[in-house]
Amino acid sequence: MIALLGKLRGKHDRAVLLIVFWLFLALLGPLCSSQDPGAIGSQPVFSSPSITHLLGTDYLGRDTFARLLNGIRHTVILCFASTLIACSVGTFLGIAAVTVRPWLEAVTGRLADGFLSIPSLLFALLVIAVFGTSTVALIITMGIIYAPGAYRTSRALAQRIVRLDFVTVARARGESTAYIVLQEILPNMAGPMIADVGLRFIYSVLLLSNLSFLGIGVQPPEVDLGSMVRENMLGMVYGSPAMIVPVAVIAVLTVGINLALDSSRGKG
């Protein structure tokens, strides 16, 4: 793990650090609150922050802080899992398209073009209409949606790298395709692919939040940031933290990673 982190360091270390931070928060966050996120107590609904309820209560009188930590867990883990699927599938196919056979490139390229001609939210609606809203279905759906984009990025990178002289020399030496992919191509794609992972993570957070907001993402009793906003829409009238804080958290998460990626783009 340490070695891996060491490898990922460099141009995008700020974005990587941010993602790692959110992952930690997702894993450990729910331990930080003693309140039960599901307990419907006798507290008033949409109450203001207090010592017992750090962010007040929601539309059923549940503790907002506890629910928020749970919501972050769902949003971050679901999105990270689907990003990993999208980027590994995309990178694998992207490199295979460049290094294996020309027909593979033609086939995968066409397929990716096809998938990309369906706007992502629509594709998600279509799949969810059929497969339902289970966690696994959501993860796989988002993984499929963002795989073509990752495929394109990695294919473009790999295409540029295989033309470079050091790959030519390795091929002339008679190195195996596996060696060329693992030793010559992949290490040189790592930087830009990390940026791509960051971008796709943001996209999936946005998509999942939208889906949950529309009521077709994460379903009760589970909660994520988007569904928290949906549940507590009424709280808007009272300016309740139950509705405003999850919106702010989504914004901090995505804007933060985006800014980190954007600032590293200028670096040489």
Partner: peptide
């Protein structure tokens, strides 16, 4: 614009309503 592309669409709608 970076901020705006980074928040989900419903945020802008609900903010407007608010």
């Amino acid at each position: 614009t970076l901020g705006m592309v980074s928040v989900p669409e419903f945020v802008i709608g609900t903010m407007a309503v608010y």
